[in-house]
Design a protein around this nucleic acid. Structure first.
Lengths: 200, 200
DNA sequence: TAGGTAATCTAACAGCGTTAGCAGAATCTT
DNA sequence: AAGATTCTGCTAACGCTGTTAGATTACCTA
């Protein structure tokens, strides 16, 4: 007939090649910045010419999309590893802040892709964006278990996360000038959100 | 003689055309993102062809440099307008935070250029960078007059500035979801830095 | 008005993402 | 095993990018 199955064994090779391309893409993006990624060079890195990449990805934007989704999967892994102790909100937030700064510093390209509009024309597709929203909502849930439920307080905290990470990356890459403020920031924040309102 | 004066009246026209180019550059950068700026379109906007721009700027990077310096001059103007009241640290910081978020939101392109690495290959020249450092140090001085001198506390505050502004721009452009937290953030911060240490 | 400089142009180069059309290889079907 | 099909990679090309070289025009100065 005409439209047969998508060939089950072919699909394996295809996915493996896709993964190989993404791996090379991260390497090059780390070297040249996320927006500096060149399809011709990326293709050469996996032994191809540029047009052949279009067999595996519809466009450069689709490559960014796959990387974006990969980034949020990795962030979810970090969040999952983090042990949440409702009895020690400060300690939990401290570790969470440190983990987030570490996550951002571990890959500048990933940070640029996930949290800044560093790629001129690109923005995540609806599906990729949905993954980021899901990750965000999981954080909301975690914070709620620490007793933080006021939306304003939650926004204030995301500001702290974002602020420490972006300052660390922009003004002390490779160092810990802002990362080491995690404890102090957590204390300041928890003191603030619990002040006046004891118990419930 | 060979190398005569740079012609005093010619220089006026030249500077005016430079300003005209920069003005158009901001307009286009606002529309397409700072990295999406096209020299051919920029030239067309001022009635030229692309190569003619090289009479006024050595390269596209030089245009970014001029815009970068302009941005810091505008930021300095904001800081200068801000009245510093040592008797009301919270109020002063609140207004300062609001002003900074407003400054960032007033021009996404300017924010991208000044505070993010949104332009692939470009980074400010030593002269342009020096202007940003000078602006930074003026802020340190202002903060010191509010009694904030501990470098750690200062870094924590820059994190708050950066965090509120970047979250506002990324997740609620045009709104005030993070901007309106300025008061609360200032209270939280001042409470923290003054706790335990009264007087001197 | 003549001379010289400054400003602008066209043509071109190497790079970019992307598309069209074609060759070859790998697979599935008979 | 042979034929039909699909899949993967290629080359050539288009229109875009920043940039340079060289020629030409416009303008200020003397």
């Amino acid at each position: 007939m005409s439209t047969s199955t998508p060939t089950p064994v072919r699909e394996r090779r295809r996915q493996q090649t896709r993964a190989e391309i993404l791996e090379a893409a991260w390497r090059l993006a780390e070297r040249d910045g996320i927006a500096g990624l060149s399809l011709r060079e990326l293709a050469g890195e996996v032994g191809m010419r540029a047009p052949s990449l279009y067999t595996y990805f519809d466009s450069k934007a689709a490559i960014y999309d796959a990387m974006f989704a990969q980034g949020y999967r990795e962030l979810d892994a970090v969040d999952t590893d983090l042990e949440l102790d409702p009895g020690d909100a400060v300690g939990t937030l401290e570790r969470s802040l440190e983990a987030f700064v570490d996550f951002c510093c571990a890959s500048v390209a990933r940070f640029q892709l996930m949290f800044t509009a560093a790629v001129p024309g690109w923005e995540p597709s609806p599906e990729a964006y949905a993954a980021s929203v899901a990750s965000y909502e999981r954080s909301v849930e975690g914070l709620a278990r620490l007793g933080i439920e006021d939306p304003r307080h939650f926004d204030l905290l995301t500001g702290l996360y974002s602020g420490l990470a972006s300052q660390q990356l922009a003004n002390d890459p490779g160092g810990d000038r802002w990362r080491r403020l995690s404890r102090e920031a957590a204390e300041m924040y928890v003191t603030h959100v619990t002040q006046g309102r004891r118990g419930a």
